[in-house]
Design a protein around this nucleic acid. Structure first.
Lengths: 208, 208, 208, 208
DNA sequence: GGGTAATCGAGACGGTACGTCGTGTCTTTCC
DNA sequence: GGAAAGACACGACGTACCGTCTCGATTACCC
């Protein structure tokens, strides 16, 4: 059983229309926003984080730099938007905590490994180390993800699988951290048995 | 009881000599190397990773840029050297696993919070996301630290506190990851109770 | 005795109405035109030619940029309109050529120095160096002014003060040029004795 | 008889070397300076003042913008250098004041008309209307030219052709102004007879 | 007297240029 | 041959204007 799947529609047309987009009046042009996000994604995928610049995105999107700065105050904000467009992680709900956490973890690592998401998220974390705005955005995002992922343990707690004094957010934190560090140190292709072992340790550690 | 202490010799004189260093002939000038490393550390501490540039280090060290590039092929290499000059933290050995792990974790977070090490290590992680050399250096460093830290659990295993099928390196990985993510998301001032709770979960999860 | 005085009606109200002007139907709104011209004049006076941009004028006039572009095809056109709103100086007629020319010259320089006219005229000359329309407008304006100013010498010629072969337009040209260059090189605060000396040279040069 | 002719050597090679120039150590590279000045001249000639930008010059010279800004603090400074490279006006010395002044004037106007100098000088004057630095540079330049040109009248004064109370600088000012305004209003193709008439007026006005 | 048409403020759009900063390479001069 | 010094080509930064556009609201004019 899967909850929370969010897909996105890719309109790959916009990027190579040939003709320039125009203003549609005194309001944001969604076509421009779309083109910019797609260009950003493409630049990241092709040139990596080191080649990712506002200029490069603007060039590729055939957009003016001010148009980007108007809507995304920093490189990080753009990165996060790109990441959000990509991401659709499943939060499993099988009725078994260990299975749920292991499913989440393997799903997340596979998602990072098999889509551009991993590279993008690495970029965001890197950016957050030098840009205060990025750090805040990342912190907010991470917190919201912890809440979401914490629900897995919360459900198990409701089922009586987990000790009363356990904080689901803390569990989410531990599980996420394990995934983050794997991403940041290039160890996404972790043996699934190891992942299960790690999850088992935590689940054993918190059960009633 | 304390193991693995590494100290460094601080020659704080070099940074503000006033007069420029000169060549000492056809060989590397240690005073320059020292001045550069100290300047790098100071820049990182004062301006953070965002202000850390080869130019800034050269300015502060009163060194020529080529002198830096001659000895450190990339920003990452310099960062790693700077980090290795730092005093490392202690790995406690009290005879009690939970106490050891909690001591290690609080010590590490405090070390990152109270010395330049935190800013430096954040920078290395950030750099490693786009620089291959930094990534390799970071991976090697992290692996060696896992081995070192794994000894804590290894000892507990020898004492029979821990189940046979537990991989001490995996435990080290989980504990370190928890610390890393806190560093990278600016949550070093974590409540000590929370840290103990996290450690307790893991220790409960792996005990015989 | 004074000839050729042109006044303008200042409706200083429009500039700071607070509330935005609206369309008054399918025809030009004179209040907007007025507000734009006044804003342009104010911007020129306060920030000079370098701060004079369509954006700045629109902001100050609380007008839309298209409203400006609709009625003034170029910055130059707006500048010219602004200049023409200015009060023009008097052409003296005392019955004495030297007195008339000196009066004209000191009056013109004082006018440029003490009113926005100087800044505006400088701007037009500058604009005319790269804008063809401005160049034409400036040429036409300058020619008409030469005719007007030539009448001073013309009258003296009628009185027999001036040699027959003297072209009054040429005299006007020489006198005006002297003033222009002073404006353009920031030498409006010229010693009056010097002005009189220059006029005397010309008057001596053309007298019967 | 002609005095003060200054020629320049054009090394048109530099502009299209194909390969980029490199630094020649910690000092100014004359090849870069040369390439920049030539590119500036070419841009001015081909695109006019409105197309003249530091960016365009840098592009054309295959130079970095900082290299230009390092040596020329403003657009005006660059323009003036370009103008100085171009200019080689004769200050005639025939022993006859009227002939000298007429020769100077026709020479100057012809020079402005037949070489890029005219366009360049117009640009400088325009620039000086919005840029304070340009204004100062132009004022200094104009003053030095007045001194130079004043020597023509000075010599005539020594010869006793000119009244004692006449200021040669003022005469130079009047003559130059006449030329400037012709340049700025696009009237360089003035009838030579008119020029002579203007000069005659002044010479008559100042003679003993 | 209801539709049409032109006007208004507003502001987004794709661009270009600004002036500054950092990169990594180079050369000279001094030791 | 190492080191300080700093110029060089390059390119990204974030901002200001450019001139064009589309909007929604607001009348005046014409059928």
């Amino acid at each position: 059983m899967v909850v929370g799947k969010v897909s996105r529609s890719v309109s790959a047309l916009t990027a190579s229309e040939g003709k320039a987009r125009r203003s549609i009046g005194a309001r944001r042009n969604p076509a421009s926003a779309e083109a910019i996000l797609e260009a950003a994604e493409a630049v990241l995928q092709e040139d990596g984080y080191s080649g990712f610049s506002i200029e490069a995105v603007a060039r590729r999107a055939r957009a003016g730099k001010p148009t980007i700065y108007r809507w995304w105050p920093s490189k990080a904000a753009l990165l996060i938007d790109v990441y959000q467009r990509q991401k659709h992680i499943d939060y499993p709900d099988t009725g078994d905590l260990e299975r749920d956490l292991a499913g989440f973890l393997t799903g997340l690592l596979a998602h990072w490994r098999d889509t551009p998401s991993g590279a993008i998220f690495r970029s965001i974390v890197a950016e957050a180390q030098s840009d205060e705005a990025a750090a805040e955005a990342l912190a907010a995002y991470a917190a919201s993800r912890r809440v979401e992922q914490g629900k897995i343990t919360e459900r198990a707690k409701t089922r009586g699988e987990v000790a009363d004094d356990v904080d689901p957010l803390q569990v989410a934190d531990m599980v996420s951290s394990y995934a983050w560090v794997r991403l940041l140190t290039g160890r996404l292709d972790e043996d699934e048995a190891k992942i299960r072992a790690a999850v088992r340790i935590i689940v054993h550690g918190i059960k009633t």
